[in-house]
C-alpha cells in the first residue's frame, strides 16, 4: 500500500551561552529508494544562513551551513513529502518490480567476494563491536537453516534483551553498553541487532528515518512522531527489520540515511565557538496526505 506522508522535523538547539559562530551539518532529508520517493523536500535554518548541500560517502543528503553572528539558539526545520510503501511488503528487500531475490545461503555469505563487498557492514565500527555478540551469534547461527531466518531470529533476540526506556541512553552509547544496561531507545535496539547480525556474518546497516506511529493513518491528521532507527540485513538483497517495534518495515517507515552506525548518520551535528553546554529539543510531526 502506498502512502504519502508529510514530515515536519524541527530541531531547536539551545546554547547555554550565546556563541559567536557555529558550523553545522544536517542529515534530515529523506532518500529516494526503490520503496520510497521524495515528492518535495526543503530545509530552513534560523538564524538565516546559506545552505550548502552535498551527498556524503553513504549517499545521504547533507545540508551544511555556518553562522557568524552571536546566537543563543539554532533552529533547523526540515519539511518533506514522501511516497512510501512503493515496493511489495517489506519494500526495501524487493527490487523495482517488487520481486524478492533468492535468499542467500550460508555459503554465499561466507564467500570471499561477499565478505569483501560488504566489509564495512560486517566489521567493527565505533559504536558496534560484533565480537561482543559472538556467543549468541553462534547459537542463532547453529539453529537456523539460512541467513534470512537467522536475521529474523537476531532481531527478535535483540528486542528481548532491551526494555524501551526513553532518555536512558545517549548518542555515544555503544551496542555493548546498551545490551549490558538492558535498556535503550530505537538507536540502541538497532545497534544491538547490528552487533548480532554482523557476528553471525550477515551484513547489516543502520537506517535512520521516521516512523508513523499509528497503523491506520487518518488522512490530514497531525501525528507526533519521532526520529527513528532500524536495520537492514543483506541476505542476497537488503531486508529491513524494525527491532524496536517488531513491525514490518513498510509504508509507515521513511528512510533518511544509512550507514554503519548512528555516528555515520547523526541528524544534526556541528561545532560552535565557546565552552561546551547545549541542549536540543526535537519535534517531529507526521501528516498522512494520501
Amino acid at each position: 500500500m502506498t502512502w504519502r506522508i508529510e514530515v515536519n522535523h524541527v530541531t531547536d538547539y539551545r546554547y547555554e551561552r550565546p556563541v559567536v559562530a557555529s558550523y553545522n551539518e544536517a542529515r534530515v532529508t529523506p532518500l529516494d529508494t526503490p520503496s520510497q520517493s521524495v515528492v518535495d523536500a526543503n530545509l530552513a535554518v534560523s538564524p538565516r544562513a546559506e545552505v550548502f548541500a552535498y551527498r556524503d560517502y553513504w549517499g545521504s543528503l547533507v545540508h551544511a551551513f555556518d553562522l557568524h553572528e552571536p546566537h543563543g539558539a539554532l533552529v533547523v526545520t526540515s519539511r518533506a513529502v514522501v511516497e512510501t510503501g512503493l515496493g511489495l511488503t517489506t519494500g526495501a528487500g524487493a527490487d523495482r518490480d517488487g520481486r524478492l531475490p533468492e535468499a542467500a545461503s550460508w555459503e554465499d555469505l561466507r564467500s570471499a567476494a561477499t565478505e569483501d563487498r560488504f566489509y564495512e557492514f560486517l566489521a567493527p565500527c565505533p559504536l558496534v563491536s560484533p565480537l561482543d555478540f559472538a556467543e549468541v551469534a553462534a547459537a542463532i547461527r547453529a539453529a537456523c537453516a539460512d541467513p534470512a531466518e537467522a536475521a529474523a531470529r537476531a532481531v527478535e533476540w535483540a528486542r528481548s534483551q532491551l526494555e524501551y526506556a526513553s532518555k536512558s541512553t545517549g548518542v555515544t552509547t555503544t551496542a555493548t553498553q546498551a545490551w549490558s544496561g538492558g535498556r535503550g531507545v530505537c538507536q540502541d535496539f538497532t545497534h544491538v541487532t547490528l552487533g548480532v547480525l554482523r557476528a553471525i556474518g550477515v551484513p547489516a546497516r543502520y537506517v535512520s528515518g521516521y516512523f508513523y506511529p499509528k497503523p491506520a493513518g487518518t488522512i490530514g491528521a497531525h501525528v507526533v512522531g519521532e526520529s527513528h532507527a532500524w536495520v537492514e540485513a543483506w541476505t542476497a538483497g537488503w531486508t529491513a527489520y524494525d527491532p524496536t517495534n517488531l513491525v514490518e518495515v513498510g509504508e509507515r517507515h521513511i528512510v533518511v540515511a544509512r550507514g554503519r552506525d548512528y555516528s555515520d548518520v547523526a541528524p544534526l551535528r556541528g561545532v560552535y565557538s565557546g565552552p561546551a553546554g547545549s541542549s536540543a529539543c526535537v519535534e517531529v510531526v507526521l501528516t498522512r496526505r494520501a
Binding site: 559567536v20 551535528r269 556541528g270 561545532v271 560552535y272 565557538s273 565557546g274 565552552p275 561546551a276 547545549s278
Partner: peptide
C-alpha cells in the same frame, strides 16, 4: 579571534 575553542 574571539574563538578560543570548538565544542561539538
Amino acid at each position: 579571534a574571539a574563538i578560543v575553542e570548538w565544542s561539538a
